[in-house]
C-alpha cells in the first residue's frame, strides 16, 4: 500500500486515495472523435515513470497529479491540479 504525500494533508495511506486515469487520457468535453478514441481507448501503459490522476477521496477530496513509477512504485512528485512540474508537461 503506497504512501502518498498529499500536498494538503501530508503523507497518507493509499487506502484514502483512488486512482483515476493516466493524465494522457483526460478527455476534454469538446474533444473531437478522432482525438477522443485514442485518449479513451489506448494507453502508453509505461513500465516506469507515469503521470497519473488520483483523488484523495477519503481525505481532502483533491484531485492530484502523481508522477509515479509503475514498476518500483516510487512516487517522484505529487502536484495539485493546475500545477505543472518544473521543466516537464503534465
Amino acid at each position: 500500500m503506497l504512501l502518498i504525500h498529499c500536498p494538503h494533508c501530508g503523507p497518507r495511506a493509499q487506502a484514502e486515495f483512488v486512482f483515476e486515469r493516466p493524465l494522457e487520457s483526460i478527455i476534454q468535453i469538446d474533444e473531437a472523435l478522432p482525438d477522443l478514441i485514442p485518449k479513451l481507448y489506448s494507453r502508453v501503459n509505461p513500465k516506469g515513470p507515469s503521470w497519473e490522476l488520483w483523488r484523495h477521496t477519503y481525505g481532502c477530496q483533491s484531485w492530484l497529479k502523481l508522477h509515479r513509477d509503475t514498476h518500483n512504485h516510487t512516487i517522484h512528485a505529487v502536484l495539485e491540479i493546475g500545477q505543472t512540474p518544473e521543466g516537464g508537461d503534465a
Binding site: M1, L2, Q14, V18, F19, E52, T70, H71, N72, H73
Partner: peptide, 10 residues
C-alpha cells in the same frame, strides 16, 4: 485498482 507492473500487492 491501479496500474502497476510491480507484482507487489497491497
Amino acid at each position: 485498482m491501479y496500474p502497476t507492473y510491480s507484482q507487489r500487492g497491497r
